[in-house]
């Protein structure tokens, strides 16, 4: 493929960046969280849970920070003129950037996952391979989604400060997504939402899992077999434990069963794919139309 040298170059740039390895260290240090709740929830698969914990907090911010300058930075410094002078279409330039950065950040995440796996193996013994592989694959898809979002922001904005502000806005919205959703839900339906005793509303639970972060947690909780929720695995387990009250939205707790079909965890794959396709499509549309510099 003609664009593969550029993709390799992008990958090398990410892999040789200090930020990438700081992200890796943060994921490992934050992820390794041996708790009784975690052990009670998934036993030896607590090791897999470490990956979910570390990735959920640090990967979104880290991957976006490692991607948002990829195009606007080159436009600002003028190096984009060299890239656009290569025998590549603008779509191929964009594709090479997404692929290269995904592979670079993905490689760092694989390292973090395997470090956590070794730590978990030594501490708790052998874990199940199915949830481990499933979580690793979901994490890599999550990486590609975040890179696509970062590069989309980098493409559609014209100033670095605007791109950085947009990233900050995205992080804030996803961080407070459940509050945003419940506020809107209450305003529209007039039904107050108590997270300790959430209403059995399909649309409410569907909206909660529409962010990439929420979809990732739903998917990995499914692999871990703890329950259907956008919360971290040990919180889901605690919520479903008898006699415990926690402010978490868990499908089984609200519906007393699996809930409507569209809340099945498999749907989260579709959510992630939409988050991959829409930013890429938007970035391509903007980058291939009009002036590129």
């Amino acid at each position: 493929m003609r664009w593969s040298p550029l993709a390799r170059s992008e990958c090398r740039k990410v892999v040789t960046s200090k930020g990438t390895w700081i992200l890796t260290v943060f994921i490992v240090l934050w992820g390794f969280r041996p708790t009784y709740a975690g052990w009670d929830a998934v036993g030896r698969n607590l090791t897999v849970g470490y990956v979910q914990i570390g990735v959920s907090l640090f990967l979104p911010v880290g991957a976006l920070l490692l991607s948002y300058q990829s195009l606007i930075g080159e436009r600002t410094t003028g190096s984009l003129k060299f890239l656009l002078g290569l025998p590549l279409t603008r779509t191929q330039v964009l594709w090479a950037k997404v692929t290269g950065r995904t592979l670079g950040i993905g490689a760092a995440i694989v390292v973090a996952t395997f470090v956590l796996a070794v730590i978990g193996l030594l501490n708790h013994g052998m874990f199940d391979m199915l949830p481990f592989v499933g979580t690793l694959l979901a994490t890599l898809v999550f990486v590609s989604v975040l890179v696509a979002i970062g590069i989309c922001i980098s493409t559609v904005t014209h100033r670095t400060v605007t791109a950085a502000t947009t990233i900050f806005g995205y992080v804030l919205v996803t961080l407070f997504w459940s509050q945003i959703v419940t506020t809107i839900y209450t305003a529209v339906t007039g039904v107050p939402v108590d997270p300790y005793d959430a209403p059995a509303s399909g649309p409410l639970f569907l909206a909660l899992r529409l962010t990439p972060d929420g979809a990732y947690n739903v998917l990995t909780n499914w692999f871990l077999g703890v329950g259907n929720s956008t919360e971290l695995f040990h919180i889901v387990y605690t919520k479903l434990a008898p006699g415990v009250s926690v402010n978490a939205f868990v499908v089984e707790a609200a519906f007393g069963g699996p809930g409507p079909w569209y809340l099945h965890p498999v749907g989260s794959i579709l959510v992630l794919l939409v988050w991959l396709a829409v930013p890429l499509g938007l970035a391509r549309r903007v980058f291939t139309r009009g002036d590129a510099i």
Binding site: R2, K13, T16, E74, T77, G78, S79, K81, F82, G85, L86, P87, L88, T89, R90
Partner: peptide, 21 residues
């Protein structure tokens, strides 16, 4: 036909930037 053009053209742009790393 940007690919066909650029593979046969050598380009030295103005006000460019190099990769400092």
């Amino acid at each position: 036909e940007v690919v066909e053009v650029h593979e046969r053209v050598g380009i030295l742009p103005d006000r460019y930037g190099l990769y400092t790393d």
